[in-house]
Design a protein around this nucleic acid. Structure first.
Length: 459
DNA sequence: AGCCTTTGACCAGCG
DNA sequence: TCGCTGGTCAAAGGC
């Protein structure tokens, strides 16, 4: 067995290890799966030139469970990761059905590993991609640029080379494929376009400090914020990025290799099954949100068959407890936080209830910062804070504390942020994608529970 | 021989 | 204008 073959075997085994590990994580809160299970939007309408798709990050080899053979593989892979060239490229180069030639690398600021630049090896194709890595070499971002003007090679090999580039054995590709179905990959690439806006940061300053010490360590409490959000708070720093695409392919992508199907069930399937039973509760404040943004979100949910419940204005004559019951029937809450959100006692009470349910593990909250910064929500500053304190003047200390706790909790959750000048259409797609991702993650938890051995009803 | 990576240099954009 | 940073080029060498 050649060294290349040996590496291929080891990395492929490690992939399977990762897959097993990922699936076993279903017992953890869904958000902890963020880095492995980002859902690719399968059927997004093209009503905007900008499409963003999330592909899962490459599984950090350091995240492999310290069990059995995978521990040895982990050590082996880590040792390879620290070696220059040759072996490491087998591990870290993302595979996406095309062949790539490295044409440069650059040490980028704030990263221990250089950013590597690749070109498509096809003679007339000018597609490029760049791959960023962090400590231990796990891929933190893959950014594509340009359109392929050719079909991908079927054998996934370039020329006669046997030196390991663009081979099917790298962790990046395998992990990618084990997290997404071939159809997802295809559709994703049909729409892929730039975005580097979404990154992961630790959810509080303590975690940030930890992250600064161990930049590549996984952290289940990471939240999703916008780049602007990051820049708002200099003390925060980027811990992980999603892999991203820039530009789009102008041609079809062949079906993924069979290994992906063998290794991992299709996320789409999970979505479909999850949608049957899971409901998304949407709360918001103000007609300025409800008449436009929320209606578009619910339209998108309709199109994507996401079951939802909207706490509409007209329902607010009813007992708040009735609304709380609806929350309890939901597994996910979409809290659309605008500047006027904090002027409503109703919304504040709802937020407190959401936090209560989330604390009990009964609800996943996805905060949507609608033209308000997460920092203002967290710190109760700006117009949001002004509205809050106006309401607070008319409220009791217990209430205020409860609301503040809830707002702090929600604003520290991973969420999505719409800036004033952002495209709402694109943002709505992001929202739908994120909701479906959480649905899948939550659904997987439920499915895992349903498969607990010894439960006759669930067998 | 062909394809690849490496690596220093060059260039462009930006503040 | 200058320095910094990121992106690309191209020669050299490896497989």
């Amino acid at each position: 067995m050649t060294q290349q073959q040996e590496l291929a075997q080891v990395t492929a085994q490690a992939v399977q290890g990762n897959t097993v590990h990922t699936q076993s994580q279903a017992e953890s809160p869904p958000y902890t799966e963020q880095r492995q299970t980002s859902l690719i939007e399968p059927e997004l309408p093209s009503f905007s030139p900008l499409h963003r798709y999330q592909i899962p990050l490459v599984q950090d080899s350091s995240e492999l469970e310290p069990v059995s053979i995978f521990n040895r593989q982990k050590c082996y892979l880590l040792s390879l990761a620290r070696q220059p060239y040759k072996q490491s490229r087998l591990i870290f180069q993302a595979d996406d059905e095309y062949n790539w030639r490295k044409y440069g690398q650059k040490q980028v600021k704030g990263s221990e590993f250089p950013r590597i630049y690749y070109k498509c090896t096809h003679p007339s194709c000018h597609v490029k991609k760049k791959v960023e890595r962090s400590l231990y070499g796990q891929v933190t971002a893959i950014i594509y640029k340009g359109d392929h003007n050719h079909e991908p090679p079927h054998n996934n090999k370039s020329g006669n080379n046997d030196n390991g580039s663009s081979k099917s054995c790298d962790i990046a590709s395998q992990t990618h494929q084990t997290s997404n179905s071939s159809s997802l990959n295809k559709t994703k690439r049909d729409h892929e376009t730039t975005t580097t806006n979404q990154m992961y940061v630790a959810s509080d300053s303590e975690e940030v400090r930890n992250a600064e010490k161990h930049d590549d360590e996984p952290d289940p409490k990471r939240r999703m914020v916008t780049k602007d959000d990051l820049f708002d708070e200099p003390y925060r720093r980027i811990c992980y990025k999603r892999a991203t695409y820039e530009g789009k392919h102008n041609h079809d992508v062949p079906a993924a290799r069979t290994s992906s199907h063998q290794l991992r069930p299709n996320n789409l399937h999970n979505t479909a099954t999850a949608n049957v039973t899971q409901q998304v509760a949407i709360i918001y404040r103000g007609d300025h949100v409800g008449c436009n943004f929320v209606s578009h979100v619910t339209d998108a949910f309709d199109r994507h068959r996401v079951n939802y419940f909207v706490d509409k204005k007209e329902q607010r004559g009813t007992d708040l407890e009735n609304i709380f019951v609806r929350f309890q029937e939901s597994s996910i809450a979409l809290a659309i936080i605008s500047t006027r959100f904090s002027e409503s006692r109703w919304c504040m009470d709802e937020s407190a209830k959401l936090k209560e349910l989330a604390d009990q593990g009964k609800l996943q909250i996805i905060p949507i910062f609608y033209k308000v910064s997460a920092r203002d929500v967290r710190r109760l500053t700006g117009e949001f804070g002004d509205n809050f304190w106006t309401l607070a003047k008319k409220s009791s200390g217990d209430q205020i504390k409860k609301w503040m706790d809830a707002l702090k909790y929600i604003s520290n959750k991973m969420g999505l942020s719409l800036k004033d000048k952002s495209s709402e259409a694109d943002f709505i797609k992001e929202v739908v994608t994120e909701v479906k991702r959480v649905i899948v993650a939550t659904g997987r938890c439920m499915n895992q529970e349903a498969l607990v051995p010894g439960d006759p009803q669930k067998d």
